[in-house]
Design a protein around this nucleic acid. Sequence first.
DNA 1: CGGGCAGTTGATGAAAGTCAAGATATGTGG
DNA 2: CCACATATCTTGACTTTCATCAACTGCCCG
Lengths: 237, 237
Amino acid sequence: MLDAVVADPLGPRNAYSPAVPSVAGLPRKQSTTIGFGAFGTIARFARDETIFSEGDEARYCYKVIGGAVRVSKVMLDGRRQIVDFLLADDLFAIDGDETHVLTAEAIGTVVLARYSRANLQRLSEDAPELRREILTALRRDLAAAQHHLLMLGRQSARERLASFLLLLANRRKHESGNRVDLPMSRQDMADYLGLTIETVCRTFAELKRLNVVATAERQYVVICNPNVLRAIAAGIN
Amino acid sequence: MLDAVVADPLGPRNAYSPAVPSVAGLPRKQSTTIGFGAFGTIARFARDETIFSEGDEARYCYKVIGGAVRVSKVMLDGRRQIVDFLLADDLFAIDGDETHVLTAEAIGTVVLARYSRANLQRLSEDAPELRREILTALRRDLAAAQHHLLMLGRQSARERLASFLLLLANRRKHESGNRVDLPMSRQDMADYLGLTIETVCRTFAELKRLNVVATAERQYVVICNPNVLRAIAAGIN
DNA sequence: CGGGCAGTTGATGAAAGTCAAGATATGTGG
DNA sequence: CCACATATCTTGACTTTCATCAACTGCCCG
């Protein structure tokens, strides 16, 4: 609502008012959306559309309403490292630099809530709840990045894929037990894991051969043997 | 000073009062130490001594006064990933979880300022300056970790070492132009770069052969050709 | 002077990358 | 709804990079 005074750089199709409905009806959890629920606008992005690029002026913070987002860094020659995948309810671009240091793109169709940074900054001065939420999100991102460093620096391809599947499984305590959704492509996984697409495929095949996972379709896997998967991820072989 | 009410788990040799001298005399910069200057106590650690371990209760935040610290994650079988090196004036353990998620160890003799988390939390409620300082440090750590991810996931050994040397060079705008101090061992560098010690050695030899750096002693390198080093780090070959 | 540790260099091996071909999905226009 | 075109994924053959194992060097310190 306060956002409306800022010209929308993305054009009308990404600027559906009205404000995000407040989440007053939800059960109060530690990481509730108080503050964030109040003044965002909704934006929609198509598959592979860029939400922002490294170097862009950072005007907004975002929260995923639906769909999945990848944030990445890209080298001059095109090598890409995906830093994180954002799923429903995840905040991103909260790091608060003047310009974005990462690129964010939609994986499939994505619906986002968008919050003006200026407002957020102003509001957070007098809202300890909001500050806490921002701080919590930052710390989660930092801890995730540090774990990710261990994966890329010290784990084998098999260990990395196992860790990745467990991360996704823990993120979404999916009602349907051991099923893990994989909204991203194999190339995206490869770029997250610091591998090639071929190695990701072969490693999936390997885990399948070990009866640790089953892959019927590409958009999800079923974890057949969580204990073995955890052992592999922890490097117990 | 407020810390004194808490029993010191490290024994008297790590608990030199008095309080850190305030930095009131220094020119005011954006990232000044206001807040942090006021109430810390000094602690000293010997070479390879553990400052805290992953899983320990997180009672303190720290700032490096002198020396260098490595923070790392370790797998069950001993594989180690160094997440960051902390040098003079760097804050660490500010992530504010209940327990430390990283291990911190002294590289050589280290002098630290130590701040109780409880105090910091309390003070930060009413001190926007202090909050800003914490937030800035967190964001810097996050940005550093994200760059580190690109290094580990997508760069060759040579590119990683070049990037590492440039990181150190930019960190300390050392009066003596192109000299970069290397307080850490080759093994530490290897564990930071996701390589083996042998590969680090060979890659140093390679950069030397290319006349990009000169290494007389092991504790420092001289960057002979910064432009080529930057080109290598950026992947322009 | 000699033991030990960190670092360096060489020979060999293994893991993952590259290149290429084929299989399976996905999407589009008729 | 089908046929074709294209993109994504999978698998295989071969190459490259880095790890491993081993020998050797220089250095610090008793």
